[in-house]
Design a protein around this nucleic acid. Structure first.
Lengths: 186, 186
DNA sequence: GCCACCCTATTCAAATTTGACTATAATGAG
DNA sequence: CTCATTATAGTCAAATTTGAATAGGGTGGC
């Protein structure tokens, strides 16, 4: 699973505690590439530790804050990391847009409600497109090209989504969603 | 969740048993738009039935095959359906490509292995792009435009993915993934 | 004419994700 | 100065997903 992959990948760079992993993920906009929830992160860390793929290096006690456990990747973990990456590329998993189904069924319900929400949605998507491009630009000088590709891919996919939503929106304003028989205007 | 949405949406058209829902989903290529696993389908059906959003109409017994329970949507279910669709459009959920992270970290491992797997992956993606376009074309005459938009969107997103993978592949053949400091060639 | 695989239809335990909750400190606004 | 928000750091029960198992019948290929 990709949470494990990220944990191992980041520990490959330096030792960290879970919360720190989260911070680094945000810095690199990885929270735009995968779901980042603390529950899953801690679960994956515990799992990896139990399997011996990572191990605690040090526990920092502090009177006021919770303890921080710093982890390091083991040799076994490095092997798993390679395996996970290759597996992920090989595995034939496609990506799903949560809106595909919602929009496909949207002709059954009150069109003006859908229209309203879509406007808001389009605005948000515009922001994400801009943000994604900015992330790409800002990282050109500082990350390896592999990471840059991921960032630019994120931007392109968002842009594709935006154009798609705008076409859909054009149709709904004309109340054409229930029509059939003619190709879309592309 | 979108499984519930689909179940309600299809029962809106006619009464069905769970396995039949799966068949219809495949016919309409909905298995390319969301994850379709029988475990989740039956779970969602049981859930909806327990909540009174759908109800069993009839149980067909057969000596050789398992019983089939046919369900119908209730008024309560119709209300939920509208709610789910609107919620899904409103909710600010972005889509994640499982390859973003794998490729972003791929510079850490044996480049020739990644290269090999990517070739295969690109070929598969080409097939999916073609399939998605074909699905769109074949449905022009027979489905409402809302569904057509979903199908075409699926095609476009796959195409965006394909171009992205090809650019990545070009870089890995030249072993440039670890480089930094120059923009991508777009 | 039989072996392997796919289709019908569903169930279930185990793995994982979700989302809310806990607690304290620092920062900023008014 | 005080209230609200954000950052730090993590836990946990409940919801959901996964992946494999079941089991009989059809079908295509060699």
């Amino acid at each position: 699973m990709s949470m494990k992959m990220v944990i191992l990948g980041l520990l490959l760079e330096r030792n960290m505690h879970p919360y720190e992993i989260k911070l680094v993920m945000k810095e690199r906009a990885m929270d735009q590439m995968m779901k980042l929830q603390m529950g899953s992160l801690y679960y994956a860390v515990d799992k990896l530790a139990g399997e011996g793929h990572i191990e605690a290096v040090e526990v920092i006690h502090s009177s006021d804050r919770p303890d921080k456990t710093i982890y390091r990747i083991t040799d076994k973990g490095k092997a798993l990391f390679e395996q996970l990456i290759l597996q992920q590329i090989k595995k034939n998993d496609i990506f799903y847009h949560p809106l595909y189904t919602a929009l496909a069924f949207s002709h059954h319900i009150d069109q003006s409600k859908v229209e309203k929400l879509l406007e808001e949605r389009i605005r948000e998507t515009e922001h994400r497109v801009n943000y994604a491009y900015q992330v790409y630009e800002e990282h050109i000088a500082i990350v390896p090209r592999s990471v840059l590709h991921a960032m630019y891919g994120r931007y392109e996919h968002s842009l594709t989504e935006l154009k798609w939503l705008k076409r859909f929106y054009a149709d709904i304003t004309e109340r054409k969603l229930k029509d059939a028989g003619t190709p879309l205007d592309l």
